[in-house]
């Protein structure tokens, strides 16, 4: 089904919001105003928003530490994400989790760990629970190309396939696992080909095309909902920043980044929208202003929020 005007604008809004958030975060990091590391997904906006926007209330996602943007269509508030980066009690982990390791189960977002893709089996288990109770819900797990080399990735795909679980495995192939290029990670060209080894559908999609990602995810989600089976999507894209904030990213040829800059998913989507008769600069301006205000409010909120009380260091280890 073709997305409606409202859906097209929603996806545009979330892409702008995600990028604006990361740009502000990067500035705060360079200014030394936030503790800890940052892991940016710049250049991958279409992969995140196109996929996460294809889900419904009740579905769950398992993002990694780079995947903050996928949380936005799930209703994660940028104020709370910013507070997490500041290590404030108003962040979802109340200052306990590292900055980019956040989520909110009430919004269907798992809180990841750094060992990837540990939440691939966890997402399969969420799908197991949905199937167990006969619920019309789907789990979607994210990871990058790097994590597809680990055993948990293969165990999760096989387990979900054997048990026919309603889960979508979404791989964002951004060409590098930290500094390691695809050719040192695997001998195949398309990670989606691995799906055949588990007897499930696999599909490669242009990760910089938000509508293509959205369509592919809808199809995979529909597959999960109707046949109760998993599938694999590989979104091919490019990480436009280093692995983490400290990474000079000098292992990627400048020419390659310049090429990918031309394929920027937001510019590309704007070109598409500009071709539609109802889209105009006013729409763009309204969204840009809204996003700018939200980011400013998020920083103000985070800075005004209290830090955790040191006396609480040992509380909450157990329920």
């Amino acid at each position: 089904m073709e997305p409606t005007k409202e859906q097209l604008m929603d996806m545009y809004y979330y892409m702008l919001l995600g990028r604006a958030f990361e740009e502000r975060l990067e500035a705060l990091y360079r200014q030394g105003r936030i503790p800890g590391a940052i892991y940016l997904g710049r250049g991958q906006e279409a992969s995140y928003i196109g996929s996460a926007y294809a889900l419904k209330t009740g579905d769950v996602i398992a993002p990694t530490h780079r995947d903050m943007m996928a949380m936005l269509p799930r209703g994660m508030d940028v104020k709370s994400i910013m507070a997490q980066h500041y290590g404030k009690v108003t962040g979802p982990t109340r200052g306990r989790g590292e900055a980019d390791y956040l989520g909110d189960l009430s919004k269907g977002i798992f809180t990841t760990v750094s060992m990837l893709p540990d939440f691939y089996p966890v997402a399969a288990g969420a799908a197991l629970a949905f199937k167990y109770r006969g619920e019309d819900r789907v789990a979607l797990a994210y990871c990058g190309d790097g994590a597809t080399s680990r055993g948990d990735w293969h165990e999760a795909l096989n387990l979900a396939a054997v048990m026919n679980l309603p889960v979508v495995f979404f791989v964002i192939n951004n060409k590098y696992a930290y500094s390691t290029p695809n050719e040192n990670e695997m001998k195949i060209a398309d990670i989606a080909d691995r799906a055949a080894g588990y007897g499930i559908p696999g599909r490669t999609v242009d990760g910089n095309d938000v509508l293509a990602v959205h369509e592919a995810t809808l199809a995979a989600v529909d597959n999960a909902r109707t046949e109760r089976g998993p599938s694999l999507i590989e979104a091919k894209t490019m990480r436009m920043r280093g692995h983490a904030g400290h990474d000079p990213y000098d292992y990627v040829p400048k020419a390659s980044l310049e090429e990918w800059e031309k394929k920027d998913p937001i510019k590309r989507y704007e070109e598409y929208l500009t071709g539609l008769d109802w889209f105009n600069d006013d729409e763009r301006e309204v969204l840009a202003t809204r996003v700018g205000n939200e980011i400013k409010d998020a920083v103000d909120f985070a800075e005004a929020s209290p830090l955790p009380d040191p006396s609480e260091v040992t509380t909450g280890v157990y329920h």
Binding site: L105, P121, V122
Partner: peptide, 11 residues
């Protein structure tokens, strides 16, 4: 795989 799945089901 199955311990991870059990964690997901528990959550």
């Amino acid at each position: 795989g199955f311990i991870g799945a059990a964690v997901g089901a528990a959550l």
